[in-house]
């Protein structure tokens, strides 16, 4: 475990210079691009229709899944046949404070992911520690039960393997089933906690809250 400071700095610089997540909107299938419902530079919300694509007289609206600004609109493709996967426009989604923090934490922390689709509960000791110290301070030692994986009344403990670590972030809800591969906990070594705190404090200062 160890934080690559240079990598985090590079990521921070990149986010500062371009605080957007760019979603390229492509044609889901072949067809004729019949009309645009948005203009270059217009703001869109999730669910808003972007353009209409016609295949076999079936006019299909393609909708936005994110909010943001429309860029690089390909007006030249209007009323022309397009192949599947043809980029039509980009949506520049301005990153919120929470989104930036989550991106940084994914890089900075060691993320423990769900090995199976199941419900996860913190072990009683960890739960007591989390309640007492709060995330960012609760320390776990090697070999300690970290979580209990429960599925159809079958309970399997998940042990912490590796050097002592601090639980910096809890990503799951004990009431809900977590799909396999989803993040459960974000861990880091106790020495790295002040550094991560500083980075997050800077992000909170720099990015306006939404």
């Amino acid at each position: 475990m160890g934080i690559d400071h240079r990598k985090i700095n590079r990521l921070l610089q990149k986010l500062r210079s371009h605080p957007y997540c760019v979603y390229a909107i492509e044609t889901p299938h072949t067809g004729y691009l019949r009309s645009f419902r948005v203009k270059e530079g217009s703001e869109v919300q999730p669910g808003e229709i972007l353009f209409l694509l016609e295949r076999e007289r079936n006019l299909k609206p393609v909708k936005s899944r994110v909010s943001g600004r429309v860029q690089r609109l390909r007006q030249d493709l209007l009323d022309r046949f397009v192949e599947a996967g043809e980029p039509i426009l980009e949506i520049w989604h301005p990153l919120s404070q929470e989104e930036v923090i989550s991106e940084i934490l994914q890089e900075a922390l060691q993320v423990l992911r769900a090995p199976e689709t199941a419900r996860y509960l913190p072990s009683p000791e960890i739960e007591a520690r989390l309640r007492k110290d709060g995330p960012g301070k609760a320390l776990v030692h090697p070999g300690e039960d970290l979580l209990i994986m429960t599925f159809m009344k079958r309970e399997t403990p998940i042990r912490h393997e590796g050097p002592p670590a601090v639980i910096y972030r809890v990503f799951f809800d004990p009431q809900e089933v977590v799909p396999a591969g989803n993040p459960l906990l974000g861990l880091c070594s106790p020495e790295e906690v002040p550094y991560i705190d500083r980075v997050l404090a800077r992000i909170r200062e720099e990015w306006p809250e939404q």
């Binding site: 299938h29 295949r55 076999e56 007289r57 079936n58 299909k60």
Partner: peptide
Amino acid sequence: EDRTVTCPNAETHGCPDLW
């Protein structure tokens, strides 16, 4: 009618267009 229609669940279930 010679055309296709989109299933209302296409987005969630990945249904292909239906002739």
